[in-house]
Design a protein around this nucleic acid. Sequence first.
DNA 1: GCTATGATATATCAAGCAGATATATCATAA
DNA 2: TTATGATATATCTGCTTGATATATCATAGC
Lengths: 188, 188
Amino acid sequence: MAQERKIDKVILGLLCHEDLSGYDIKKRMDGAVSFFWKGSFGNIYPALKDLENSALITKTDSSVGGRERSVYHITDAGRDALKEWLCDEQASNELRYETLLKLFFSSGAGREVSIRNIELFEKQTARDLEILKTCCRSLENAQDNEDHIYYYLTASFGVETYEVYLRWCKKAKKILRATPHNSIAESS
Amino acid sequence: MAQERKIDKVILGLLCHEDLSGYDIKKRMDGAVSFFWKGSFGNIYPALKDLENSALITKTDSSVGGRERSVYHITDAGRDALKEWLCDEQASNELRYETLLKLFFSSGAGREVSIRNIELFEKQTARDLEILKTCCRSLENAQDNEDHIYYYLTASFGVETYEVYLRWCKKAKKILRATPHNSIAESS
DNA sequence: GCTATGATATATCAAGCAGATATATCATAA
DNA sequence: TTATGATATATCTGCTTGATATATCATAGC
């Protein structure tokens, strides 16, 4: 069966507020949305084509000079499709953390390697946390706008989970350093 | 370019401790690993074929009667490949939370819908948390085994993040209920 | 002893998706 | 004037999921 394509909903959701080109959509997705859902040109452009064929969006040429540019606009049917998805109680929530995958199998490589991997994860998390915190602060004081409440809630989800990640990193490193245990890897 | 296939590492990691069939591997992946990395037959079986061709694993027929069964065993080259991956500092950590995606675009559907979606997420999280907690408790008192320390660390990552998820759910529902704001959706 | 059910076991396909790559235009800064 | 980087659209390969197909075996109930 045809799988539900999430990129369609992201596009409809973004177009709900403003008309955008495929490139604009990519930029938006690289922003605040990216920490819980990523997208690429490889699925954005085909999705735009399909959504246009299904009349959920319309395409307008807004080329300037020799520079091509297509801007997309959501239709009433598109808004309905978005709402239907929002009301659908199914939701797939999935973590794909290679750092944890590595840690799970780390007895073959030893503690120094694990600690190094946790430190790298810690650094990346700390960087991302700062971005999300800035985002969160700017939304906190603008909750008269209905949209901003939702943006704030997703951003605060990120802030709170990332803070826990950092606490876990500290604890994990402490445990790994506590009882030095020689592994096959560390002796090679 | 050939992408790094994560399923290969999962298989090598699991085979590091015991010989397994494709079906066994799926079962293991549905267990404790599944909360941070999922797998399916659709990629496990092709990966087993490729890993065998690359001599990272060997296949042994262990059919009983008319019932086919192939058991795989890791080779020294396979252990090296696993270790190489463990030592590689690159790691892609990705969240794909449809619940957050919906929440981000929820102004079009209204607060009741958002609260319902959060409640569903909350229930699923609470269920998963119980499983992880049980897993964590049994590992806590068995840290003389080197492997168990890594299993414990990944499980405790899950417990701690899921607990934060639940706290966030409570907060989010409270905010959404605090300032009742009529949306286009609630009036339809 | 028979039968239904569910677990075991292997495999394939369509569709979704990421990452890399290609091509071309335009603004700008050196 | 020229190089760089942002804008813009598009395609391809390979990885991944979810569904589906097929067949065997253990067991539990009748």
